[in-house]
Write a protein that binds this DNA or RNA. Structure first.
Length: 819
RNA sequence: GCCGAAGUGGCGGAAUUGGCAGACGCGCACGACUCAAAAUCGUGUGGUCUUUCGACCAUGUGGGUUCGACUCCCACCUUCGGCACCA
């Protein structure tokens, strides 16, 4: 008896498939396209981990299933290969970042190949290679031409450990997303992409993505942080009526303003305090607040501290003056960096006013009653305006509009929208990234490198000393000529955030070898959008927001016909062990290669798909893996035991008895697996259905119809093909087939076969199951009711009781209500 | 604090539209095969009580709707995730 030799089977078929090129994208344009994509990996030196195995296994089931269902599938793979680890290896070990990366890429790809995923390797791409990054530069120039890439001096996030700046999205709780170091602020001139121009469209687009998880959409909405209200312009009498504008979501409370607060960094602060009696004190106070880190300043429980500048501001509608304060809780990078204080109707303002003895003026009255005086807390609810001049008696929701309009009329502000989203800071003071294709000329300023001169290649003659951006050490790179005037010029030495590289790679797969353009719009039309995108939740805001932004810009430029890149998003859960995420530092990792070595890729894939539905976290279990290996071994032995059957295949005669039962089981299984894989992505229950079919096959009597048995075995192998592709292929050929099981059409089921002739119904009394009843499916309600009432057990239970009501749910149960 | 997701046997999980809770797998127990072990095959397996028949309890907690609730409604508890002085 042969035994299941996973390693040999897998090596054999991987070789055969590669030689025949079976995973190349189907050229048959008459078929419906399906683009399924797993987030491409960063090829770290450690190679693949179980999280990778999980995404790829999920993607491969979908790809194979769609192919068998007659779709033309695009299923590509590549690497997100720029990034800091390569550079750190260069600093620590003196290796060349390119060689180091290429070596890791090769190892990574070999590991992926051993999983037997059906990728079209012809479309493989690596973001760090010039044939890719020249088009990253091309796209940067497109943004530049469209006014969406600009340079400005700003206070930016700086990670001291990574020695580079970071985008807002890459700072988590004041720490660097990569290395966890405390992020500080630095005043630097940097490149930004104008993602804020797309804030509303990025929000609106979310409403057209029903197949995205709600929580990812919520996270993006939170991040964008759209806030509707009004801008209100006060004036500063002592500075020649210089305007100072605040943003508020509650313009209806404008008559309740009793003070203004500016951020310590506000540009008017310097002029306001100059010459004031308490100037020295104020200056010291401002310095101290500026020194406090972002997190200290913005922690919810941080004490609100402020100081009166001694200056006053004039109210645009009443003409009254109110004091101007400076306080730590007002942030320069949100809204206008200045707020109006309405203590009666804002909790924060209330606290602040109480602490510093500022006046509190009620301007909103609840509809049912009066506010207590003095207030114990701010009243933030709805109501009617009071103490508000011409607006008295107006509903506050109406007043929001009326007061905004009045402000607009007086040219003192008007309706306004503010976002939490900031422009995307993309400069990085690092070597191993895509060079920004800009040249600085003393005469012409910042000049873009012409597209036909791309790529701007990364130089080799650089020094990695860990002290400065290595690019600045390359004379051959820095010294150049101005594309505009031909005079001497310097190159930009910052590289781009690697999230730019991954913001367009899904387009490149559609036309991966184009050497003229990033992609031909016709090829995009052929394949985009991505029908199913699979990846981790950690990119809910980062990669997924940036990619949506890029897509919208490319749409506006007429390069792509879609304005959302991913129709459906599947966020797979983490792989845990002992309840914690696998990580080297915790020492709870399981090596995919070791598992493949020991049990085979089919077992690894099957376990990871069987142990939990894809979106949920998955608890690793060694014995669970054993179980899946045993199952595959059982399938192998079962088919091999019946190998003879396929030499002289008898016609199936499933008319009666066990054959009919098995035949029904086949069709039920097809339905279950088709729906679970095709509609719900519940691979775990699909696998359990196949297990049940195999159990039924093993219980099938020796003397029952052989043809039906052969059908069952064949169907089982076909259904298993997307999950355990190597074993399925091996068994398919053992059954005497010449073609690949993966080219088989997906089986269809006969709906008539799903209808049983007899059904077992539960008989309940007052909702408790007391007996079972087997009836023909055709039996009508009355018959079923009578049968149920005449069951011995039921009669016993009913003795002494009166039947009040009988509910019959056809094919399910009978419930007798009695007391 | 706000928003979101989830709580089901010893474990992973199933129950798709309000209709027999615990499919499938793991683990465990017993048995067959074996000199023995591994592998394999078979049987059983939510809890309590009961010799049996069976009865009762049970899907985080407490209520509600319903003939009937893991599923719907209300309140609460726990865990995880996101946002958080955002004006």
């Amino acid at each position: 008896m042969q035994t299941y030799q996973a390693k040999e089977i897998e090596a054999k078929w991987q070789r055969v498939w590669a030689e025949a090129g079976v995973h190349r994208t189907d050229p048959d344009a008459t078929k419906t396209k399906f683009y399924t994509l797993e987030q491409f990996p960063y090829p770290s030196g450690e190679g693949m981990h179980m999280g990778h195995v999980r995404v790829y296994s999920i993607g491969d089931v979908i790809a194979r299933f769609k192919r068998m269902n007659g779709y033309r599938v695009l299923h590509p793979m590549g690497v997100d290969a720029f990034g800091m680890p390569a550079e750190n290896a260069a600093i620590e070990r003196g290796v060349n970042p390119r060689d180091w990366t290429l070596n890791n890429m090769k190892k990574f790809r070999e590991e992926q190949e051993r999983l037997g995923i059906s990728y079209d390797w012809d479309r493989y791409l690596a973001t760090c290679l010039p044939d890719y990054y020249r088009f990253t530069q091309w796209l940067f120039l497109l943004f530049y031409e469209r006014g969406l890439a600009y340079r400005k001096k700003a206070s930016v996030n700086w990670c001291p450990d990574c020695a580079t700046v970071l985008a807002n999205e890459q700072v988590e709780n004041g720490k660097c997303w990569r290395c966890d170091a405390e992020v500080t602020k630095k005043e630097l001139e940097q490149w930004f992409l104008k993602i804020t121009d797309y804030a509303d469209r990025l929000l609106e687009g979310l409403d057209r993505l029903p197949r995205w998880p709600e929580r990812v959409k919520t996270m993006q909405r939170n991040w964008i942080g759209r806030s509707e209200g009004a801008k209100v312009t006060f004036t500063l009498p002592e500075l020649n009526d210089e305007p100072v504008t605040v943003f508020t979501t509650r313009p209806d409370t404008l008559y309740g303003v009793t003070y203004l607060v500016l951020a310590p960094e506000h540009p008017l602060v310097e002029r306001l305090i100059a010459g004031k009696e308490k100037e020295e004190e104020l200056r010291a106070f401002i310095e101290q607040m500026k020194k406090e880190s972002e997190i200290e300043r913005t922690a919810a429980d941080a004490e609100k501290v402020g100081m009166d500048t001694g200056a006053v501001a004039r109210h645009p509608l009443t003409g009254e003056t109110v004091p101007v304060w400076i306080a730590n809780y007002v942030l320069m990078d949100y809204g206008t960096g200045a707020v109006m204080g309405v203590p009666a109707h804002d909790e924060r303002d209330f606290q602040f006013a109480r602490k510093y003895g500022l006046p509190i003026r009620h301007v909103i009255q609840p509809r049912d009653g009066e506010l207590e005086n003095p207030l114990a807390e701010a009243y933030t609810g709805e109501g009617v305006l009071i103490n508000s001049g011409p607006f008295d008696g107006m509903d506050n929701r109406e007043a929001i509009r009326a007061i905004s309009d009045q402000l607009a009329e007086k040219e003192a502000g008007g309706p306004a929208v503010t976002y939490r989203l900031r422009d995307w800071l993309i400069s990085r003071q690092r070597y191993w990234g895509c060079p920004i294709p800009i040249v600085y000329c003393d005469g012409c300023g910042a000049v873009p490198v012409p597209k036909e001169e791309l790529p701007v290649l990364l130089p080799e003659d650089v020094t990695f000393d860990g002290k400065r951006n290595p690019l600045t050490t390359s004379e051959s790179f820095v010294q150049t000529t101005c594309p505009s005037c031909g005079g001497p010029a310097r190159r930009e030495t910052d590289t781009m955030d690697t999230f730019i590289d991954s913001s367009w790679y899904f387009f490149r797969y559609a036309d991966a070898k184009n050497d003229r353009l990033p992609f031909d719009p016709e090829r995009i039309r052929e394949w985009l959008p991505v029908d199913e995108y699979i990846g981790g939740i950690e990119h809910a805001v980062l990669h997924l927001l940036y990619s949506r932004f890029f897509t919208k810009v490319l749409y506006d430029a007429g390069l792509v016909h879609v304005d959302e890149p991913f129709t459906s998003l599947l966020t797979q859960g983490m792989v845990l062990r002992d309840g914690a995420k696998m990580s080297k530092s915790k020492g709870n990792t399981v090596s995919p290669l070791e598992i493949i070595e020991r049990y085979g890729a089919d077992t690894a894939r099957l376990f990871i798909l069987f142990a939990a539905p894809p979106e949920r976290d998955l608890e690793w279990s060694d014995s669970g893996v054993e179980g899946c290996y045993r199952f595959l071994g059982r399938v192998f032995r079962t088919v091999m035991r019946h190998e003879e059957l396929f030499r002289n295949r008898p016609e199936a005669r499933p008319e009666k008895g066990p054959a009919r039962d098995l035949y029904r089981r086949i069709h039920r299984t097809i339905k279950k697996v088709t729906e679970d894989v095709g509609e719900r992505y519940h691979f775990n229950t699909a696998i359990s259905a196949i297990m049940e079919l195999m159990n039924a096959i093993n219980e099938y009597p020796e003397d029952a119809d052989r043809g039906t048995l052969a059908d069952a075995l064949e169907t089982g192998v076909i259904l298993l093909a997307p999950f355990a592709p190597h074993l399925a292929e091996e068994l398919w050929h053992a059954m005497g087939h010449e073609t690949s099981v993966h080219e088989q059409p997906w089986p269809s089921y006969d709906p008539e076969m799903l209808v049983e002739e007899e059904v077992e119904m539960a008989v309940q009394i007052n909702g408790r199951v007391r007996d079972k009843l087997v009836v023909p499916v055709t039996a009508d309600r009355e018959t079923v009711e009578q049968l149920a009432l005449n069951q011995e057990r039921i009669k016993n239970h009913l003795s002494g009781k009166t039947v009040r009501k009988v509910i019959v749910v056809p094919k399910k149960l009978v419930n007798i209500v009695a007391n």
